[in-house]
Design a protein around this nucleic acid. Structure first.
Lengths: 226, 226
DNA sequence: GTCTATATAATGATAGAC
DNA sequence: GTCTATCATTATATAGAC
């Protein structure tokens, strides 16, 4: 167990992990179906046969990527720390934030995570659910402390807040383009911060007119439409 | 031109449009790469050769689907109205809202649109940009009328509001699951309305503590991190 | 316009040498 | 562990009959 440890200096890792990282990169960049086993092998600089030899099937390789990404985003220090800190686990929000702080290195992981959330059901579903639970608890604590609004439907409010936090990950391309940049740069993310906090503090509407109308509309029973 | 018009009763349309609709359905459900020309042909109850005969290539069929969806979501009355109303065009937000009002019928179109936004660059990019422009103008008008907050960065604020409006489309599956439903039902969408308006009216934060801290942090220059 | 039959290329996966 | 060579399947696209 001691002698079998590898260097893990990120530069030259185990062959298996190098293949897995290549798969994360290409799956995240082009999607699962559009990425061939041969392309992954080429990226990892091994033969196509070796990829299958290590993972069995392409689908199993995908699952290994899923598990790696989930473990990575939920682990205290990512691939950097190796057990020195005692913190047991982190939240999805913290993990994504940590990745964003080092965008260049973790862009493949972010792209992969975005696809996990929008493609087919995957381990990311549990991540999302945990994020919602954590958000709901956070809002409840904030409301108890008097610094947050509870809202009429705490669960749905938590779902919306959680989903909105993930939104930049999914619409990265469009957000960047809309402000005249390519992709979502660090500068663009920083520019998002203040407007987001403003919206979460004062809202968008300066009056309660729409809110009143919405409440009235729901109260009078909206069984029919148009 | 008179005799060549088809019935268009949605039940039995032109063969070409039936193939296109089948492609929209399957591309939206499973993605472009995971959908074969043969599967589209089977769904449209024609031969695989006929699909290629009409559209040339699978990629050209995809483009036809893109154009159809864009035209459909931007047209005044969708496939229903046929020029009786004089309205020239609609916005993406209005079109999506119209689709949601009739979820069962337009679910394939919604699924397809969601993939257009997250997959590769497509005609949906222009749709998003137009939505941001329209949102920015709307907020400017609202601010001038005193019913909305302008925000310190109107452009980015518009981007965020626009993107947040699209979010339920992209995270449909997760939102439904988080509140214990399968998919995003009409009931679930209705349940989202009030909490969304509440957030847009009062915000999430009851104090300006975080906002003040954010402003202070940005003002003091945040060139270094951690 | 619509079909069947087929050409051709690429894919995931296997077999066996080293 | 790693490679090369190959199999079997499936994919898009073409050709030509009706």
């Amino acid at each position: 167990m001691v002698l079998n440890m590898r260097s893990l200096t990120a530069d030259d890792a185990t062959t298996v992990s190098r293949i897995r990282d290549a798969a994360v990169l290409l799956f995240g960049r082009s999607g699962y179906d559009a990425t061939s086993v041969r392309a992954i092998a080429a990226e990892a600089k091994v033969s196509a046969g070796l990829v299958i030899h290590h993972f069995g099937t392409k689908e199993a390789l995908r699952l290994a990527c899923d598990e790696h990404i989930v473990a990575e985003v939920m682990s205290p220090g990512g691939a950097d720390a190796s057990g020195t800190t005692g913190a047991p686990e982190t939240t999805l929000a913290d993990g994504v934030q940590r990745w964003i702080d080092n965008l260049d290195v973790h862009r493949p992981a972010l792209d992969y995570l975005a696809r996990m959330l929008t493609d087919r059901p995957s381990l990311a579903d549990g991540l999302f659910d945990a994020l919602v639970d954590r958000t709901e608890a956070m809002i409840a604590e904030g409301a108890a402390a008097g610094v947050m609004h509870r809202g009429s439907d705490p669960r749905m409010t938590a779902v919306i807040v959680a989903a909105q936090g993930l939104m930049p990950l999914l619409l990265e391309r469009h957000i960047g383009r809309a402000i005249g940049e390519a992709g979502l740069s660090v500068a663009a993310i920083r520019r998002m911060t203040l407007p987001s906090v403003e919206l979460y503090t004062h809202g968008l509407y300066a009056t309660t007119a729409l809110l009143d109308a919405t409440r009235a509309g729901l109260a009078s029973g909206e069984g029919t439409h148009s």
